[in-house]
Design a protein around this nucleic acid. Structure first.
Lengths: 337, 337
DNA sequence: CTGAAAGCGCTTACAG
DNA sequence: CTGAAAGCGCTTACAG
């Protein structure tokens, strides 16, 4: 079962390895290799089940046909779906994907980038963490195509593609105010990433546009590294006590789900006592009773667009000027609006 | 920004590349290289930020420190979690993971194995599809460590680790019968994979043990490739019409979720009109109203065990005799028991 | 039309 | 104690 190499094929065909390589890489014509010979070699290779060693090829050409995808957590619903889209898209163009999860840990993210570099991936799709600017700059300086997804750095010239967080939240809040909600609470996480900031800004600006005051006591910030129990407790406390709220907006996926758990515990009636909206859609929101109004991200579109940019740059060199803010979709269900 | 190689380090240190390689691979002592020199080289490498090219190393040593993980679908809850566990575990031992999804398509699975082979991965964790026996045999014949997860082939000598499907279902059904349920319906998928067969056998044997008849009209089989709408319709029809059922057991994750959607549409009262149990646990089941009794798989344990076996074989050679059937855990909630 | 040879960046017997 | 050299499996100028 020894893996056979180009040498074996060459020997059996009675030609040099160079000739075999040319034929197998579709350069037979270019190299003016006789048709008969080319056919013979192709047939032989197929017969013997020859498969080129990608490591050797990569070493020689500097191209590995492998992409690196760094997400926050592959087991998270949003990122799992994103990964799937990217995998499918990559497959179409004959690329493979190396995934990894940062868990929003900068150190881990740095290590992952290093690892992907060592493995010579041809391009990167990265969900950055705080403090990753330098590493990303270096990648770009090294002429490696990079596309950031889900978030980006305002002070860094990079490609990025994500949902238009600001507009999505702005529109939703505006609509809620239009429906008569006056005290809209918001639950968010303490990550200093631009996507969360923009969601928060969307909230603030929508209030301002509606001439409603921005009240700090209507904002609950949960630490990203809080334990599940601790986070649950904080959210429950916020929903149950504090100033009166006629609606709550959860600025991210997992907090919304946490919110649902609290509802159950507190026996809060949604939407009668309080309307409920979450960023990111999820099967849970659709199937919950009452079903939950959610701001869905265009995952497919994000993944596909990111891949397009990446492949384009791999082919034609870096540009770093692709900035895509894709439209979110408000899915109205029973819990609000 | 040219990547620097071992040659550059050697030059700057005024030694041969061999010496550098020895030092950097911790063989300084073994090769009796002077402590002073070793330290100098280590320091220099660190200073210059040298990172070995893994492609070259892989080509030379035949080891890539990369593992291949083939799952059904990375965006599926169970497999996403499994992937995360395996990623974390791999990281501990300094391995990277190449994931891919088969979507239960044999042709795709074959291609994926080929791709992973071309990339010279050191070992495989595979969720097999029907008809993959030959490919897996070849891998093993080629001395590559392979661990099957979630399912296996009865007629193939391989390592495998999965939940004890038979026992889990047998125990659950037995318990349900004990609680007085007499007409327990079951919804399953038409995949001829051993895991599904064993779940079905658990159901049949539990009925037999309880001296209840096995009735074909209490079994609904949904084609794996049915569209979402079609599947929904079939399940709804089964829940709503047909013979009277006092309980329904969904033999897999995604069918259980489909079942929940039907409940909503049909306005069925669970558990009053019908008890509801699903294989695989999920946030949805926990948060649903009523909350859903589910048979949870020990995902962490499955992932960890698979990795242990794989690493062991990578280190000490193939054995192919690890057979692990891990215990499932019945999580009793409001919908049944 | 085709072959001999260099080289990608490593590791590892072998020789001294 | 350390270096020169071969070789992993490819691709690609170069020469004829």
């Amino acid at each position: 079962m020894k893996k056979l190499s180009i040498k074996d094929i060459a020997q059996k065909a009675g030609v040099s390895t160079a000739t075999v390589s040319f034929v197998l890489n579709g350069k037979a014509e270019e190299m003016r290799i006789s048709d008969t010979l080319a056919k013979k070699i192709t047939k032989l290779a197929k017969q013997l089940g020859y498969q080129p060693n990608q490591l050797a090829r990569g070493l020689r050409t500097g191209k590995t046909h492998t992409l690196g995808l760094i997400v926050e957590n592959i087991s998270n619903h949003f990122f799992g779906n994103l990964a799937k889209v990217i995998e499918d898209e990559a497959k179409k163009y004959n690329y493979k994907v190396l995934y990894c999860s940062t868990e929003n840990n900068t150190l881990k993210a740095k290590e992952l980038i290093q690892m992907l570099q060592d493995r010579q991936v041809d391009g990167y799709i990265i969900t950055p963490t705080e403090g990753l600017e330098g590493d990303i700059e270096k990648l770009i300086a090294g002429k490696k195509p990079v596309v950031l997804v889900d978030r980006y750095f305002a002070n860094l010239t990079t490609n990025y593609v994500l949902v238009d967080n600001y507009q999505a939240v702005f529109d939703t809040i505006t609509r809620m105010v239009g429906e008569g909600y006056q005290q809209i609470g918001v639950v968010t996480v303490d990550l200093a990433m631009i996507n969360m900031e923009q969601r928060m800004n969307g909230y603030k600006d929508a209030l301002k546009a509606a001439k409603l005051p921005f009240r700090k006591d209507l904002v609950k910030i949960i630490p990203f590294d809080a334990s599940r129990e601790k986070a649950l407790e904080s959210v429950a406390e916020f929903l149950d006590g504090g100033p009166k709220k006629d609606a709550v907006f959860f600025l991210t996926n997992y907090l919304g789900i946490l919110g649902l758990e609290c509802l159950k515990k507190l026996k809060l009636k949604v939407p009668d006592q309080m309307a409920f909206v979450s960023f990111d859609d999820h099967d849970i929101f659709r199937l919950h009773t009452p079903s939950i109004t959610a701001l869905a991200q265009p995952v497919e579109d994000i993944g596909r667009t990111a891949m397009q940019i990446l492949l384009e740059e791999i082919k034609n060199g870096l540009k770093n000027d692709a900035h895509h803010l894709l439209k979110g979709e408000l899915v109205v269900r029973e819990s609000a609006l």
